[in-house]
């Protein structure tokens, strides 16, 4: 289990309990987090589950592969700590993590 906070672009916060082993995208969708579109259903193929990980947490989210880099490169809102949440697997190490949502999912 991990307690994760999503902050929408307008500042609204949502705190969810995510299950270990599921993707962060799935956890967000299950908890009706607005702003996670996940059009491709988790195939790292659309870039619409983009989150910006708050300082200090990036390493704990795991490695970014070339496909994810490629998809993140397509969004004009890409930041230093951008990730696709479908590629982050929830673990105890993420307990307490805060992620921000971009203005639009591209």
């Amino acid at each position: 289990m991990g307690r994760i906070t999503f902050i929408e672009h307008n500042g609204r916060e949502h705190v969810i309990e995510a299950e270990t082993g599921q993707s962060l995208m799935q956890a967000a969708v299950d908890n009706n987090i607005p702003g996670i579109d996940a059009d491709c259903g988790g195939a790292c193929a659309c870039g619409t589950c983009h989150v910006i990980v708050e300082n200090g947490w990036l390493k704990a989210t795991g490695d970014i592969n070339a496909d994810e880099q490629g998809m993140l490169g397509l969004t004009p809102e890409k930041a230093e700590t951008s990730r696709l949440s479908c590629q982050i697997i929830v673990s105890d190490a993420l307990d307490g993590m805060v992620v921000r949502l971009p203005e639009f999912q591209m």
Binding site: G41, A45, M106
Partner: peptide, 18 residues
Amino acid sequence: ARKHLSFGFGVHRCMGNR
């Protein structure tokens, strides 16, 4: 409804979709 192929998937996904 958003899960459709019209914009393509992957690196060539439609740039103007939004």
